[in-house]
């Protein structure tokens, strides 16, 4: 049977009662981190992201969401601890959306990018990406097309690096445009990428460690019996 990864793409803005339920499952450190963020929108997005991760990982493991604990790897990648360590998790948020990914057995990375109107994707890719990818971004149709190409490549790079538990910056030159099996340079090894169908204005990619094929199940709600 093929490996599988489950991904949820969720709205960061939720009604007050849902926000309270997410907040109730956070641990003290997560509540403290949420409180430090400078605006209400950032605080709420953080709370939804980490709360949804706990709810979904709790369902997958059978553990109470608030009881789950993660430890951080050398470069900050969180990994579930103790009896839950067979489940791999990844979390990303950008703009008004949150992405949660769960995988049994193979380390996972997910990344969501809001295609921002500002910035200079052509200069950024020329400076930091592989030359072929920089040409791909520069040849994008119009300003929006160039921004979307940049965001798609960025999401693919970041998803692979998150699966690897490595550092983003030394891996920015990693080619990810052609072919779905990519090689990280920092935490070396192959990772298989998949682009996900997303709402307009966003790019989402998921990566699993290793080059074997896998199935992706993507949902936009919790499903929900919570």
């Amino acid at each position: 049977m093929r490996d599988a990864v489950r991904v949820w793409i969720l709205a960061a803005a939720v009604p007050a009662d849902a926000l309270a339920r997410y907040r109730a499952v956070l641990d003290a450190d997560e509540r403290d981190r949420a409180a430090r963020l400078g605006t209400g929108a950032l605080r709420d997005r953080f709370t939804v992201a980490h709360g949804a991760l706990r709810v979904l990982a709790g369902r997958a493991t059978g553990a109470p969401p608030a009881a789950l604990t993660w430890c951080r790897g050398r470069y900050g990648k969180p990994a579930l601890t103790g009896p839950w360590s067979g489940l791999h998790t990844s979390l990303s948020y950008s703009g008004d959306l949150v992405a949660v990914a769960l995988s049994e057995g193979r380390p996972v990375g997910v990344d969501i990018q809001h295609v921002a109107p500002g910035g200079d994707p052509v200069s950024a890719s020329a400076r930091f990406f592989h030359p072929r990818e920089a040409r791909h971004v520069a040849a994008g149709p119009g300003r929006a097309g160039r921004a979307l190409r940049f965001a798609r490549l960025w999401a693919r790079k970041e998803a692979a690096v998150k699966a690897a538990g490595g550092r983003l910056w030394p891996n920015l030159g990693m080619p990810v445009h052609r072919g779905d099996v990519v090689e990280c340079v920092d935490s070396a090894g192959p990772y298989r990428l998949t682009d996900l169908r997303t709402p307009a204005g966003y790019a989402v990619a998921v990566a699993l460690t290793g080059d074997r094929q896998y199935a992706v199940e993507c949902r936009t709600d919790l499903g929900d019996d919570r």
Partner: peptide, 11 residues
């Protein structure tokens, strides 16, 4: 505090 993302960091 600022919620700086990696892509904004690059910018």
């Amino acid at each position: 505090e600022l919620g700086l993302s990696s892509s904004l960091g690059l910018e």
